[in-house]
Write a protein that binds this DNA or RNA. Structure first.
Lengths: 202, 202
DNA sequence: GTCTATATCTAGATAGAC
DNA sequence: GTCTATCTAGATATAGAC
């Protein structure tokens, strides 16, 4: 919570001890180092993220379900957004974490690739090979950096549901142009619905 | 250079003094604080970025010219990539810098919007209003975070021309689906050419 | 397990001679 | 303008009593 609110580099171990109502010494009884705390949090994130990376073989390819998957994914990342906000430094300090994160990204990319392939197999999507790689780059960029990006403007970092809707709609929009007309319309209408609903919240 | 290589938080004022072959005391004669150095570098960046934000009225809308514009923009950002790598922290520490950066982003977004509008006026581009906003979000995300994103995998952060080609092609690909067929083909062929050329470098 | 007190270290920044 | 030497603050981490 503190990391999310203040940023990992700005949270001291004394502050953590203070906030958890234990002494600094006690904190270091439970954790070997500050980095150890970060690592422990990363592990929790990774465990929860894991199931979202397994694209089930019998995955439904309907817009609703994809939306929901993306929603779960962004929501979880939002809870651990301090990790994504300081990716460069957090991974630079710790080569274990660095490898772990890279591995996660590669798996996420593969999951996205498999999903596109499924859509291709079903005839719903058609895309050239070079376009597919570029699309995957763009998708990954959104999946990794949407949270820090949105925080530059709104502070709330995906706590706000409106921000999340825009994130998901943005991701889906990147895929839409390559969809067959029927699915294209289905996706577009879903996005419109959510976006209209979200604006109504204001 | 040090900031780019090691990351701003990991560069001490003593190291800067060392690298520039002057004493720490002398460094503080020339700059009031470390943040002052960051600010000075940001100013240089902003001055050089300024002309790239002015989309000329008589802008040519050919793929080649857009490519070149994006190339200049990414190249410049690459030279100051430490700013983009630690956006969250760098702007959090200094509210002046925060405002300045936000202003830059908004202007960049406006520039992109104007460019899209020009394409619309000329009949080359057709896009719905809600799609346009989402597209602008996605474009901005690429323009702001492509460099740190690429650094997660390659270290070289846009020094490598291959990385830059992918960045630009990715941006253009996001616009392509909304282009009229003639321009769509023109853009696609340009991307293919650069991408093929870049792969040949390996 | 938990505390208080403190060690250690390193960063940014300053003082004052030259 | 430039230097050496040093201050100061704040952060991580440890020692040792309870």
């Amino acid at each position: 919570m503190l990391f999310n609110r203040l940023g990992e580099p700005n949270v001291t171990t004394n502050l953590i001890a203070d906030e958890t109502c234990i002494s600094p010494g006690n904190l270091y009884y439970h954790f070997n180092s500050k980095q150890d705390i970060v690592l422990e949090l990363f592990k929790r994130f990774a465990v929860q993220f894991e199931p979202l990376l397994d694209v089930p073989a019998e995955l439904s390819l309907h817009a609703q379900d994809l939306w929901f998957q993306l929603h779960l994914s962004f929501e979880l990342k939002g809870h651990f957004r301090f990790l994504y906000r300081n990716l460069a430094d957090i991974t630079a300090d710790d080569s274990n974490l660095n490898r772990a994160f890279k591995g996660l990204f590669l798996r996420e990319r593969e999951a996205a690739r498999n999903l596109l392939s499924s859509l291709e197999d079903s005839g719903a999507l058609s895309i050239r090979k070079t376009e597919k790689e570029l699309l995957l780059n763009n998708l990954m960029l959104s999946l990794v950096y949407w949270i820090p990006f949105s925080e530059l403007f709104s502070e709330s970092g995906l706590e706000d549901s409106d921000v999340q809707v825009k994130a998901i709609a943005g991701v889906l929009q990147m895929v839409m142009p390559y969809l067959r007309e029927r699915e294209h319309i289905e996706f577009a209408e879903l996005c419109d619905t959510y976006l209209a609903h979200s604006r109504a919240d204001d």
